[in-house]
Amino acid sequence: MKISEIAAVLNAEVYTVNHDENADIKSACSADLMSDVMAFSKENALLLTGLVNPQVIRTAEMMDMKAIIFVRGKKPQQAMIELAEEKRIALLATDFPLFEASGRLYQQGIRGHGY
């Protein structure tokens, strides 16, 4: 799925412009604990999380992820948006909770790789 398609499914707002819109996202990981993302997630292009701080973007960068979706109505701060733009990582925010957001993407064919 493209980032714009994911945004449409989750009724999400997209905060970045300098990301790879053509990235074909097939897999995702949902977690609030960044160490767990790095310990257990393998080849996932998308991170769904309720945690909002700059380290979420750093973690996504180390993991080669293309996009982050903040759930439960949480919004990224300006400094985080700037950091994400620099790293070419898309930032999205949805009002859906983590389970619901993950489920909706699963229905669209997104899967978790490596667990």
Partner: peptide, 17 residues
């Protein structure tokens, strides 16, 4: 912990990778 760390995974993660 509020930053998403401090769950006791740091050193094990380093060892793993």
């Amino acid at each position: 912990r509020e930053m998403g760390f401090g769950a006791g995974m740091g050193l094990p993660n380093m060892k793993k990778h």
